[in-house]
Design a protein around this nucleic acid. Sequence first.
DNA 1: ATTACTTTTGACCAGTTGGTTAATCAATTT
DNA 2: AAATTGATTAACCAACTGGTCAAAAGTAAT
Lengths: 211, 211
Amino acid sequence: MIKTSVPDSHTKEKIFMAASEIFEEKGYTGARMQEIADRAGINKALLHYYFSTKEQLFKAVFQVLLKKMFEKIFSIFSEEISFKEKIRRFLDEHIEFMIKNPKLPIFLLNELSQNPALLQEIREMVNYQELRDMIYTRHAKELKGYGIRKNDMPQLMVTVVSFSIFPFAARDMLTVIMPQMDDAKKFNAFMRERKEFATDFVVTALKHRKK
Amino acid sequence: MIKTSVPDSHTKEKIFMAASEIFEEKGYTGARMQEIADRAGINKALLHYYFSTKEQLFKAVFQVLLKKMFEKIFSIFSEEISFKEKIRRFLDEHIEFMIKNPKLPIFLLNELSQNPALLQEIREMVNYQELRDMIYTRHAKELKGYGIRKNDMPQLMVTVVSFSIFPFAARDMLTVIMPQMDDAKKFNAFMRERKEFATDFVVTALKHRKK
DNA sequence: ATTACTTTTGACCAGTTGGTTAATCAATTT
DNA sequence: AAATTGATTAACCAACTGGTCAAAAGTAAT
């Protein structure tokens, strides 16, 4: 009898993937170590061999998923393009990213509200000087032209980000006023339409801002 | 010894309140029947005397909280005022409502994504004919003036709603790019500023819409 | 005071859950 | 081939969790 003995000693990775899926789907409290082990195709004891506790496994998964989200945002805003172009690029790429990870926002938002300390690691990662430069200083002239004061930037940034994230987080709720969104394809089409809608919306609002 | 025997046989209400708080805070899977009983100041057996199962208690609480949210939205959009005025009123009143119930959105969104069937009851409550009238038909002329086609309405409605809901749902996450929002007072001030910002933003975008 | 009914309680239970342990298996080294 | 080391497993455990039950306490009517 030939032993399979595949060189798939990537057991740890299999566990990590299984855990990512299940945590993302059911949250920390809803996830079961047994189910994670099952999906990874291993024994529960082996799970604890690689990740000693549920909390440790969760934190590892959470940090990776959280970074995935922020890296996508930061990478676009750090490019050397105009502010308006950043918004356009962001809405395009981030919505595509969300279509591929539709469950990510509710998961992150919920776990974060349950345990805000989870942000710590990412907070330490962020260089505020650089961040302020990326989203404000570097575009001071352009923004002044729109009548946007430094004071308004937080409002504007939250608005832009919410254009892409909110509909995914609130998807089920939105079906109350938009029943057709029940269908995944229609919802994705709606979100792709939203790229243009949001860009126009923001650009128009900026251009004609009362000063 | 005088028995207290207060006429506070509103035990069921006390349970309901305690359950609302704890479910809202920890979600369905995170909540513990024992903790709910403790907060209501009663025995766990008595809890099951009034609400036979955790699921039943949860559904009762959830439906009430969900309705609270939708009623607030619907009531404003059913008033006899212009569309622009509806948006203004909505942003004002809904943001004040959210300041009083900041944990509501993440809770509703998360539980809904975990169990979409929870929407059923509210779906049956909604009259789509009336809803379409409220947010579109009744304002057909006004909307045409802005160059808003019937097709754009879903995008616009989602945008308006997200202005007030998203920051509350994403509050912890937002502190990564806005550390000062850690403070509740500053956050509320930010949201009150947002009323005007959002109204201007939407109105300006509408007024100068490319047609 | 006795009866009848509802409310409240302490003790208990079966199933679940995260986590442990001692043993087995596989690979590498000596 | 014996020994050493790491990977994997089955069986087990203590704590927790939702839920039950029979008895006690309180209330109202006869």
